[in-house]
Every structure is written in C-alpha cells, then in structure tokens.
C-alpha cells in the first residue's frame, strides 16, 4: 500500500498542469497569434523578462488587498455583531445593506478618487467595500439562528442578553465568520484590482493596463496568473484558519 498515489491530493496539481498543456497545445495547433492568446510558454517568458516589475506590483496588490480585507474583518465583525444582536436592528439595517451591496463598486471608484486622489487608498477602500458584506451577513446570521431552546434554558436562569451572546451567539457564529472569510478574500482581490485599473500608478491592475496599451499581451496574461496565484494562496490561508479555529464545526474531519 505504501507507494499508492493519493488521487485526491494529486488531483488539483494534475488538473492545473492539464489545463496549461491543453492551452499550449491548442495555441500551437491552431496557430493563434500571440496578441490574441499567448501560449503559456510565451506568458512564462514574459514573466521572466519583467520579473522585477511583476514582483513589485504583485506585492503592491497583495498589501492593498490585505489591508482592505483587514478593515473588512474588523468592520464586518463589528457590524455583524451589532446587526445580529437584536431583531429590530437586523430588520432596520438589512435592507440598507442589500442596497449598498447592490451598487456596482466600479461606480464607486471614481467617487473614491474624487475624495482621496489616485494611489493606494482607493484600492484599499474598494477592496474593503466589496468584501465586508459577506462577513456582516454571515456573522449576523450566526447570531440570529440561536436555538430558541438554548435561549430559554439560559433566560430562565436569569441570563442577560450579553451572557447569551458571549456564551452561545458568538461562538456559534464563528464557523459562519471563518467561512465568510474565504468568500471575502477573493472579493477583496476583485476590489483592489478594479481600483488599480481605474486609478493607480502601481499594482497588478495598473501593470495590466500599461501592458495592454503597449500590446504586451503575454505580460497581461502573466499579471492575470500572478493574481490567480495570490488569490489561491490567500484562500488557502483562510481555509486553514477556518479549520484551525472551528474544527468542532467540521465533525467528520475532526473526529479522525
């Protein structure tokens, strides 16, 4: 049994390699010009050529995203607790939240630029604005779905709302919270890159725009892949954190 391949573990790598192989083969066989769809090898070559710039701009995007995401965690957790605390607050603020979330963030970026000028700040704020919503909704849902029996047990003993929230509500909403981080981090990348393409002088979004203007199509794709890699990395970090913090909610995995 020792040398058996763990197909579940190998599957993501095999699929990724497979995708690149098919992509390469398709471009070569069909003779697609590089300015329409560059082959992975051309993309890799461009990435090597512009490695310094790619690295700098990747870091720029990573930190603006992380900063916006960090704000979203703090603010989302706070607002989620506030909304989930009381049915009336929940009823009052929820429609506003939905409305706000429905506003396309691409329409908000010019306003942010108007207020704060171009640069990193609009990117951080866009990442924040787009990613806090799922955190709020999930934390509030966790609090709002406490079993009524549990509440009765504690209230009959004279427990105050604060006791019920700290002993039941907040621990109960943690799996929802950590689950929402996985959604929120990918949204945060969308926000920061969106803002960088509109109004910034650094970051992957900005670099992509510049490369496109210079017809460096392979470099545009290199930027996209760099983004995807950052997204996967941060997602994996969040998934790991979720497993660490709320293992009790994932019984089957935890038990073994």
């Amino acid at each position: 049994m020792a040398a058996r391949i763990d197909w579940v573990k190998a599957a993501p790598w095999l699929c990724t390699i497979g995708l690149f192989l098919i992509w390469e083969a398709a471009v070569r066989l069909l003779g697609v010009p590089y300015y329409i769809l560059p082959a992975p090898t051309a993309v890799a070559y461009a990435a090597g050529e512009f490695a310094g710039g790619l690295w700098r701009n990747s870091l720029q995007t990573l930190w603006t995203t992380a900063a916006g995401f960090g704000l979203a965690i703090v603010f989302g957790l706070g607002l989620g607790l506030f909304i989930g605390w009381d049915r009336r607050i929940y009823a009052g603020l929820y429609p506003l939240m939905i409305g706000f979330n429905s506003i396309p963030k691409v329409a908000v970026v010019p306003i942010l630029v108007l207020w704060f000028g171009t640069g990193w700040l609009p990117a951080v704020l866009t990442a924040f604005l787009i990613s806090f919503f799922p955190i709020v909704v999930n934390v509030a849902t966790g609090l709002a779905t406490i079993e009524p029996e549990m509440e009765d047990v504690l209230r009959a003993l004279g427990a105050k709302k604060f006791d019920i929230m700290t002993k039941v509500g907040i621990p109960r909403s943690l799996p929802f919270f950590f689950g929402s981080l996985k959604v929120a981090i990918t949204l945060a990348f969308i926000g920061s890159v969106l803002s960088e393409t509109v109004a910034a002088n650094a970051g992957l979004g900005h670099m992509m725009l510049t490369a496109q203007a210079n017809f460096e199509v392979p470099l545009v794709f290199a930027c996209l892949i760099a983004l995807a890699v950052e997204g996967i990395g941060m997602y994996a970090l969040m998934a790991w954190l979720e497993k660490r913090m709320t293992g009790w909610a994932q019984r089957s995995g935890f038990n073994r």
């Binding site: 079993e147 029996e149 549990m150 009765d152 047990v153 504690l154 009959a156 003993l157 004279g158 427990a159 006791d163 002993k167 039941v168 621990p171 109960r172 709320t246 009790w248 909610a249 019984r251």
Partner: peptide, 25 residues
C-alpha cells in the same frame, strides 16, 4: 429545563455543557 432536543453546544465538552447554568446563576 430539558427539551425534546438536547441542544448541546458543540464547541464545549459535555461536562462544560453541563456546567453552563452555573456560569449564569
């Protein structure tokens, strides 16, 4: 009080679930 549904808190050990009322009274 006890109900049809045991409503235990899954993040607490059984004994800490039992002790929950004492954290209130």
């Amino acid at each position: 009080m006890a109900f049809q549904n045991p409503v235990m808190l899954p993040w607490r050990l059984t004994r800490d679930n039992v002790l929950l009322p004492l954290e209130v009274v």
